[in-house]
């Protein structure tokens, strides 16, 4: 198992390298110079050129890319922001906690609504309850986050004065962003729970469990749900991954200093190096959550655990064979 985790952690490296290469390439071919934006419209062509030289923006593609990687490896630095003149990593780390708090709670909220709704819809399949639950879930997924954010802001903050309009000076400020980020994934969670439960409920062992005379509750919770969990965990993992990367729209509307907001401002100000750092950190979070999801599979399903363990063993036999040759 530990071998499996270590192997997976090593597999993260090519993914992160790939991320840097892709995003770096996209930004490299963008034609607006951040130097021009920093120096303003009055700056001469020479001043812009000098600034670009200072940042190394006029070097060839491979030199710039190589320098970026070298900085990460040798100094653990993601570079210095063109606009704020601060280390990118520090800027991200300052903002990450806000995003993580909101993301974690929002994903938890959506899971706590989505899974029970999905189970209910599956148990009461083709009844009014099923239709209502399914429709509610689809509706949750259909409301665009910016509309939801603005309407909440209007009703709860501007009209009723229950919550602050924006910012997170007190814990009250977190409520609306959490709801805004938590509503949309309900659709996916509920849908996946419903279809996975439906598939499981039709299995022979569920009929056996019922025939044994077990209580319906035991059948659903102990036999059906446990076996339906794998696809549900996949979706829950995706929900957490997406939420933890920050919701750009709700962070922008509620003016929350988080990863999404930094990303947004770095894009509008052509601060490519900050943008690259943000995407890299987000990709790392995504991959890390995927890894945790895969580990939870093993905890839930002994068959998968056996598989993971086998990989390690197979790897060992393979090595032995190679040594023999």
């Amino acid at each position: 198992m530990i071998r499996y985790i270590i192997r997976r952690l090593f597999l993260l490296i090519p993914i992160l390298i790939g991320t840097v290469v892709i995003v770096f390439t996209i930004n490299f071919f963008s034609d607006i110079s951040p130097a021009r934006l920093v120096l303003g419209p009055t700056a001469t062509e020479e001043q812009v050129e000098a600034k670009e030289d200072e940042w190394g923006l006029n070097d060839p593609y491979l030199v710039q890319l190589g320098r970026y990687f070298w900085r990460i490896v040798s100094q653990g630095s993601l570079g210095t922001s063109y606009i704020y003149n601060q280390p990118v990593l520090k800027m991200i780390m300052d903002r990450l906690p806000n995003t993580l708090i909101i993301g974690l709670l929002a994903a938890t909220l959506s899971v706590m609504i989505g899974i029970p709704l999905g189970i209910l819809a599956a148990i009461k399949q083709n009844t009014a309850l099923d239709y209502i639950a399914t429709f509610l879930a689809i509706l949750c997924g259909a409301i665009p986050p910016f509309v939801l954010c603005i309407l909440m802001q209007l009703v709860l903050a501007v009209r009723l004065h229950w919550l602050p309009v924006s910012g997170i000076r007190s814990w009250l400020g977190y409520i609306m962003p959490i709801i805004a980020c938590g509503v949309m994934p309900v659709a996916m969670t509920c849908r996946m729970t419903r279809s996975s439960m439906l598939e499981t409920i039709r299995q022979d062992y569920i009929r056996t469990a019922r025939a044994k005379g077990l209580k319906e509750g035991t059948v659903i919770w102990k036999h059906a749900l446990k076996n339906a969990l794998i696809p549900i965990i996949t979706v829950v993992g995706m929900t957490y991954a997406m939420s933890l990367c920050g919701s750009i729209i709700s962070e922008a509307i509620f003016n929350i200093p988080g990863l999404g907001n930094l990303m947004n401002s770095s894009i509008s100000q052509k601060d490519y190096i900050t943008n690259l750092g943000c995407v890299l950190v987000a990709a790392f979070i995504m991959s890390f959550v995927t890894l945790i999801t895969d580990l939870i599979y093993a905890a839930v399903d002994p068959r998968i655990k056996a598989q993971y363990a086998a990989t390690g063993k197979r790897a060992r036999t393979y090595k032995r064979k190679e040594a023999a040759v």
Binding site: I15, G18, T19, I22, V23, I26, N27, A241, M242, C245, I248, M263, N264, I267, N275, C278, V279, A282, A283, M286, S287, T290
Partner: peptide, 10 residues
């Protein structure tokens, strides 16, 4: 592994 919205924005 790239988060959809961030990538689309970039």
């Amino acid at each position: 592994a790239l988060p959809g919205m961030l990538f689309a924005m970039t």
